[in-house]
Protein backbone atom coordinates (compact mmCIF):
# COMPACT_ATOMS: atom_id res chain seq x y z
CA UNK A 1 0.00 0.00 0.00
CA UNK A 2 2.70 2.40 1.04
CA UNK A 3 4.70 1.51 -2.04
CA UNK A 4 1.68 2.17 -4.20
CA UNK A 5 1.28 5.64 -2.71
CA UNK A 6 4.90 6.46 -3.37
CA UNK A 7 4.68 5.32 -6.96
CA UNK A 8 1.53 7.44 -7.33
CA UNK A 9 3.27 10.45 -5.86
CA UNK A 10 6.21 10.11 -8.20
CA UNK A 11 3.97 9.69 -11.20
CA UNK A 12 2.01 12.81 -10.23
CA UNK A 13 5.25 14.70 -9.85
CA UNK A 14 6.36 13.57 -13.29
CA UNK A 15 3.14 14.37 -15.07
CA UNK A 16 3.24 17.76 -13.40
CA UNK A 17 6.66 18.43 -14.84
CA UNK A 18 6.08 17.09 -18.31
CA UNK A 19 4.42 19.75 -20.40
CA UNK A 20 4.11 17.36 -23.31
CA UNK A 21 4.09 18.76 -26.78
CA UNK A 22 2.76 17.30 -29.98
CA UNK A 23 5.03 15.81 -32.62
CA UNK A 24 7.29 18.27 -34.39
CA UNK A 25 6.08 19.31 -37.79
CA UNK A 26 7.60 21.25 -40.64
CA UNK A 27 11.35 21.33 -41.17
CA UNK A 28 13.31 18.49 -39.66
CA UNK A 29 15.17 19.53 -36.56
CA UNK A 30 17.95 17.07 -35.76
CA UNK A 31 18.15 15.86 -32.22
CA UNK A 32 21.74 15.05 -31.24
CA UNK A 33 22.69 13.37 -27.97
CA UNK A 34 26.04 14.49 -26.56
CA UNK A 35 27.62 11.97 -24.18
CA UNK A 36 30.81 13.12 -22.46
CA UNK A 37 32.71 11.00 -19.92
CA UNK A 38 33.88 13.64 -17.48
CA UNK A 39 34.28 17.39 -16.97
CA UNK A 40 37.77 17.88 -18.35
CA UNK A 41 39.40 20.75 -20.33
CA UNK A 42 40.25 18.73 -23.44
CA UNK A 43 36.92 16.93 -23.61
CA UNK A 44 35.01 20.17 -22.99
CA UNK A 45 36.87 21.73 -25.93
CA UNK A 46 36.05 18.77 -28.18
CA UNK A 47 32.35 19.01 -27.33
CA UNK A 48 32.45 22.75 -27.99
CA UNK A 49 34.06 22.15 -31.40
CA UNK A 50 31.54 19.46 -32.28
CA UNK A 51 28.60 21.69 -31.46
CA UNK A 52 30.08 24.67 -33.33
CA UNK A 53 30.58 22.55 -36.47
CA UNK A 54 27.00 21.30 -36.43
CA UNK A 55 25.64 24.78 -35.77
CA UNK A 56 27.74 26.14 -38.66
CA UNK A 57 26.28 23.50 -40.99
CA UNK A 58 22.74 23.25 -39.68
CA UNK A 59 22.05 26.59 -38.02
CA UNK A 60 19.08 26.25 -35.72
CA UNK A 61 18.04 22.94 -37.30
CA UNK A 62 19.83 21.04 -34.57
CA UNK A 63 19.21 20.66 -30.86
CA UNK A 64 21.60 19.07 -28.40
CA UNK A 65 20.77 16.90 -25.44
CA UNK A 66 24.04 17.34 -23.58
CA UNK A 67 24.84 14.87 -20.81
CA UNK A 68 27.97 14.28 -18.79
CA UNK A 69 28.63 11.03 -16.93
CA UNK A 70 30.57 13.09 -14.36
CA UNK A 71 33.44 10.65 -14.36
CA UNK A 72 31.28 7.65 -13.50
CA UNK A 73 31.84 5.25 -16.40
CA UNK A 74 28.74 3.20 -15.50
CA UNK A 75 26.64 6.33 -16.03
CA UNK A 76 27.64 6.31 -19.71
CA UNK A 77 25.37 3.29 -20.14
CA UNK A 78 22.47 5.08 -18.42
CA UNK A 79 22.88 8.09 -20.69
CA UNK A 80 23.32 6.02 -23.86
CA UNK A 81 20.16 4.13 -22.96
CA UNK A 82 18.33 7.42 -22.54
CA UNK A 83 19.44 8.65 -25.97
CA UNK A 84 18.31 5.45 -27.64
CA UNK A 85 14.96 5.65 -25.83
CA UNK A 86 14.58 9.24 -27.05
CA UNK A 87 15.39 8.00 -30.56
CA UNK A 88 17.94 10.75 -31.16
CA UNK A 89 19.19 11.20 -34.73
CA UNK A 90 22.85 10.84 -33.78
CA UNK A 91 24.98 10.25 -30.70
CA UNK A 92 28.23 12.14 -30.14
CA UNK A 93 30.43 10.10 -27.80
CA UNK A 94 33.32 11.97 -26.22
CA UNK A 95 36.03 9.60 -24.78
CA UNK A 96 36.45 5.84 -24.90
CA UNK A 97 33.89 4.58 -22.31
CA UNK A 98 31.30 6.93 -23.82
CA UNK A 99 31.94 5.38 -27.23
CA UNK A 100 31.77 1.86 -25.82
CA UNK A 101 28.47 2.47 -24.04
CA UNK A 102 26.94 4.19 -27.09
CA UNK A 103 27.99 1.47 -29.52
CA UNK A 104 26.67 -1.18 -27.12
CA UNK A 105 23.37 0.63 -26.80
CA UNK A 106 22.61 0.86 -30.51
CA UNK A 107 23.66 -0.63 -33.83
CA UNK A 108 21.35 1.59 -35.85
CA UNK A 109 21.66 5.19 -34.60
CA UNK A 110 24.88 6.73 -35.99
CA UNK A 111 27.58 7.24 -33.35
CA UNK A 112 30.31 9.82 -33.96
CA UNK A 113 33.08 9.72 -31.38
CA UNK A 114 36.16 11.76 -30.57
CA UNK A 115 38.94 11.89 -27.97
CA UNK A 116 39.41 8.16 -28.58
CA UNK A 117 43.00 7.13 -29.22
CA UNK A 118 42.29 3.74 -30.78
CA UNK A 119 38.89 2.89 -32.21
CA UNK A 120 40.13 -0.65 -32.88
CA UNK A 121 40.94 -1.25 -29.20
CA UNK A 122 37.81 0.50 -27.97
CA UNK A 123 35.55 -1.68 -30.12
CA UNK A 124 37.41 -5.03 -30.19
CA UNK A 125 38.15 -4.71 -33.91
CA UNK A 126 40.93 -7.11 -34.89
CA UNK A 127 41.50 -6.31 -38.55
CA UNK A 128 41.57 -2.54 -38.53
CA UNK A 129 40.98 -1.10 -41.97
CA UNK A 130 40.47 2.52 -40.98
CA UNK A 131 36.69 2.10 -40.88
CA UNK A 132 34.61 0.43 -38.20
CA UNK A 133 32.16 -1.20 -40.62
CA UNK A 134 29.38 -0.44 -38.15
CA UNK A 135 27.30 2.57 -37.13
CA UNK A 136 30.41 4.17 -35.59
CA UNK A 137 32.94 6.68 -36.90
CA UNK A 138 34.77 9.73 -35.58
CA UNK A 139 38.12 11.37 -34.97
CA UNK A 140 41.04 9.97 -33.00
CA UNK A 141 43.15 12.00 -30.58
CA UNK A 142 46.28 10.12 -31.57
CA UNK A 143 48.77 12.81 -32.52
CA UNK A 144 51.25 11.39 -35.04
CA UNK A 145 54.78 12.64 -34.44
CA UNK A 146 53.82 14.78 -31.46
CA UNK A 147 56.27 13.13 -29.06
CA UNK A 148 59.30 13.82 -31.22
CA UNK A 149 58.29 17.48 -31.47
CA UNK A 150 57.68 17.66 -27.72
CA UNK A 151 61.15 16.22 -27.01
CA UNK A 152 62.66 18.84 -29.30
CA UNK A 153 60.62 21.48 -27.52
CA UNK A 154 62.35 20.68 -24.21
CA UNK A 155 65.71 21.59 -25.78
CA UNK A 156 64.26 24.62 -27.54
CA UNK A 157 62.74 26.21 -24.44
CA UNK A 158 65.05 24.90 -21.72
CA UNK A 159 68.51 24.53 -23.28
CA UNK A 160 70.15 24.09 -19.86
CA UNK A 161 67.96 21.18 -18.78
CA UNK A 162 69.80 17.87 -18.40
CA UNK A 163 67.36 15.65 -16.50
CA UNK A 164 63.83 14.92 -17.67
CA UNK A 165 61.24 13.31 -15.39
CA UNK A 166 58.52 11.44 -17.29
CA UNK A 167 55.42 11.74 -15.16
CA UNK A 168 52.22 9.74 -15.72
CA UNK A 169 49.65 7.30 -14.38
CA UNK A 170 50.90 3.73 -14.79
CA UNK A 171 47.32 2.51 -15.20
CA UNK A 172 46.98 4.25 -18.55
CA UNK A 173 48.42 2.07 -21.31
CA UNK A 174 48.30 5.08 -23.58
CA UNK A 175 50.69 6.98 -21.27
CA UNK A 176 53.01 4.00 -20.89
CA UNK A 177 53.30 3.68 -24.66
CA UNK A 178 54.14 7.38 -24.98
CA UNK A 179 56.76 7.12 -22.23
CA UNK A 180 58.37 4.21 -24.10
CA UNK A 181 58.47 6.25 -27.29
CA UNK A 182 59.75 9.54 -25.94
CA UNK A 183 62.63 7.87 -24.11
CA UNK A 184 64.13 7.10 -27.51
CA UNK A 185 63.91 10.75 -28.57
CA UNK A 186 65.37 11.95 -25.26
CA UNK A 187 68.29 9.53 -25.63
CA UNK A 188 68.93 10.89 -29.10
CA UNK A 189 69.03 14.42 -27.68
CA UNK A 190 71.45 13.31 -24.94
CA UNK A 191 69.05 14.00 -22.10
CA UNK A 192 68.98 11.90 -18.95
CA UNK A 193 65.51 10.63 -18.07
CA UNK A 194 63.66 8.76 -15.36
CA UNK A 195 60.01 7.70 -14.97
CA UNK A 196 57.90 8.87 -12.05
CA UNK A 197 54.56 7.09 -12.02
CA UNK A 198 51.51 6.80 -9.83
CA UNK A 199 48.53 4.48 -10.12
CA UNK A 200 45.99 6.41 -8.07
CA UNK A 201 45.20 10.10 -8.53
CA UNK A 202 45.57 10.65 -4.78
CA UNK A 203 49.30 10.01 -5.10
CA UNK A 204 49.93 12.73 -7.70
CA UNK A 205 51.20 15.40 -5.29
CA UNK A 206 53.69 13.11 -3.60
CA UNK A 207 55.12 11.66 -6.82
CA UNK A 208 55.31 15.17 -8.31
CA UNK A 209 57.52 16.31 -5.42
CA UNK A 210 59.89 13.39 -6.03
CA UNK A 211 59.98 14.09 -9.76
CA UNK A 212 60.71 17.80 -9.28
CA UNK A 213 63.48 17.10 -6.77
CA UNK A 214 65.31 14.91 -9.25
CA UNK A 215 64.63 16.60 -12.56
CA UNK A 216 65.22 19.92 -14.33
CA UNK A 217 62.08 19.56 -16.40
CA UNK A 218 59.01 17.32 -16.22
CA UNK A 219 57.37 15.73 -19.26
CA UNK A 220 53.70 14.64 -19.00
CA UNK A 221 52.16 12.59 -21.86
CA UNK A 222 48.44 12.79 -22.75
CA UNK A 223 47.49 11.31 -19.40
CA UNK A 224 43.86 11.52 -18.31
CA UNK A 225 44.60 11.30 -14.59
CA UNK A 226 47.05 14.22 -14.74
CA UNK A 227 44.67 16.15 -16.98
CA UNK A 228 41.86 15.76 -14.46
CA UNK A 229 43.57 15.89 -11.09
CA UNK A 230 47.00 17.55 -11.15
CA UNK A 231 47.48 21.19 -10.18
CA UNK A 232 50.08 23.82 -10.98
CA UNK A 233 51.36 24.16 -7.40
CA UNK A 234 52.39 20.51 -7.29
CA UNK A 235 55.24 21.13 -9.76
CA UNK A 236 58.23 23.22 -8.74
CA UNK A 237 59.94 22.58 -12.10
CA UNK A 238 58.64 23.51 -15.57
CA UNK A 239 56.35 20.97 -17.23
CA UNK A 240 56.26 20.18 -20.95
CA UNK A 241 52.82 18.78 -21.61
CA UNK A 242 51.53 16.17 -24.06
CA UNK A 243 48.46 18.15 -24.97
CA UNK A 244 46.70 21.47 -24.70
CA UNK A 245 44.50 20.70 -21.67
CA UNK A 246 47.42 19.56 -19.52
CA UNK A 247 49.44 22.58 -20.70
CA UNK A 248 46.63 24.87 -19.62
CA UNK A 249 46.53 23.18 -16.24
CA UNK A 250 50.17 22.69 -15.27
CA UNK A 251 52.47 23.11 -18.28
CA UNK A 252 54.65 25.85 -19.72
CA UNK A 253 54.29 24.62 -23.29
CA UNK A 254 53.25 21.80 -25.59
CA UNK A 255 53.02 20.73 -29.19
CA UNK A 256 49.46 19.58 -29.34
CA UNK A 257 46.59 18.77 -31.54
CA UNK A 258 43.67 20.93 -30.70
CA UNK A 259 40.75 19.11 -29.06
CA UNK A 260 38.51 21.84 -30.38
CA UNK A 261 39.65 20.92 -33.90
CA UNK A 262 39.11 17.15 -33.54
CA UNK A 263 35.70 17.91 -32.06
CA UNK A 264 34.96 20.28 -34.95
CA UNK A 265 36.06 17.65 -37.48
CA UNK A 266 33.78 15.10 -35.79
CA UNK A 267 30.97 17.65 -36.04
CA UNK A 268 31.55 17.96 -39.78
CA UNK A 269 31.35 14.16 -40.12
CA UNK A 270 28.12 14.20 -38.11
CA UNK A 271 26.69 16.87 -40.42
CA UNK A 272 27.61 14.73 -43.43
CA UNK A 273 25.75 11.77 -41.89
CA UNK A 274 22.70 13.82 -40.94
CA UNK A 275 22.36 15.94 -44.08
CA UNK A 276 23.56 13.57 -46.81
CA UNK A 277 22.62 10.33 -45.13
CA UNK A 278 26.20 9.05 -45.43
CA UNK A 279 26.68 5.64 -43.83
CA UNK A 280 29.10 5.93 -40.87
CA UNK A 281 30.38 2.44 -41.71
CA UNK A 282 31.98 3.87 -44.85
CA UNK A 283 33.37 7.05 -43.28
CA UNK A 284 37.00 6.42 -42.32
CA UNK A 285 38.05 7.36 -38.80
CA UNK A 286 40.17 10.52 -39.00
CA UNK A 287 43.50 9.76 -37.39
CA UNK A 288 45.81 12.67 -38.05
CA UNK A 289 45.41 16.33 -37.34
CA UNK A 290 47.52 19.43 -37.59
CA UNK A 291 49.53 20.33 -34.54
CA UNK A 292 50.56 23.67 -33.17
CA UNK A 293 53.08 24.91 -30.62
CA UNK A 294 51.27 26.33 -27.63
CA UNK A 295 52.34 27.93 -24.36
CA UNK A 296 50.78 28.87 -21.08
CA UNK A 297 51.58 32.59 -20.53
CA UNK A 298 51.19 32.69 -16.73
CA UNK A 299 53.17 29.53 -15.94
CA UNK A 300 55.92 30.32 -18.48
CA UNK A 301 56.26 33.78 -16.92
CA UNK A 302 56.47 32.24 -13.45
CA UNK A 303 59.58 30.27 -14.50
CA UNK A 304 60.92 33.24 -16.49
CA UNK A 305 61.03 31.31 -19.76
CA UNK A 306 61.15 33.23 -23.02
CA UNK A 307 58.67 31.97 -25.57
CA UNK A 308 59.47 32.27 -29.31
CA UNK A 309 56.99 34.14 -31.46
CA UNK A 310 55.64 31.07 -33.33
CA UNK A 311 53.88 29.88 -30.17
CA UNK A 312 50.21 30.52 -29.52
CA UNK A 313 48.82 30.97 -26.02
CA UNK A 314 46.49 28.27 -24.68
CA UNK A 315 43.08 29.63 -23.83
Amino acid sequence: MKKLLIVLFVLLLLVGCSGEKGGDEGDKVFNVGVLQLIQHDALDKATEGFKDALKDKLGDKVVFDEQNASGDSANCAVIANQFVANDVDLIFANATPALQAASTATDTIPVVATSVTSFAAALNIDNWTGMTGTNVTGTSDLAVGALEKQAAQIVELLPDAKKVAIFYCSAEPNSVAQADEIEGYLDALGLEHQRFTFSDSNDIAQVAVNACEWADVVFVPTDNAVASYASEDQFSKPVIAGEEGICKRIGIATVSLSYYQIGYKAGEMAADILINGTDPATLPVVEESEMSKMYNPSIAAKFGIEIPSDYIAVE
Partner: peptide
Amino acid sequence: MLSFSALLRALPGN
Protein backbone atom coordinates in the same frame (compact mmCIF):
# COMPACT_ATOMS: atom_id res chain seq x y z
CA MET B 1 10.37 19.36 -25.03
CA LEU B 2 9.98 16.89 -22.19
CA SER B 3 7.90 13.95 -23.22
CA PHE B 4 6.65 11.50 -20.67
CA SER B 5 6.74 8.64 -23.15
CA ALA B 6 10.50 9.17 -23.63
CA LEU B 7 10.94 8.59 -19.92
CA LEU B 8 8.89 5.41 -20.15
CA ARG B 9 10.91 4.18 -23.12
CA ALA B 10 14.12 4.69 -21.15
CA LEU B 11 12.68 2.78 -18.22
CA PRO B 12 13.69 -0.77 -19.22
CA GLY B 13 17.36 0.23 -19.45
CA ASN B 14 17.22 1.99 -16.10
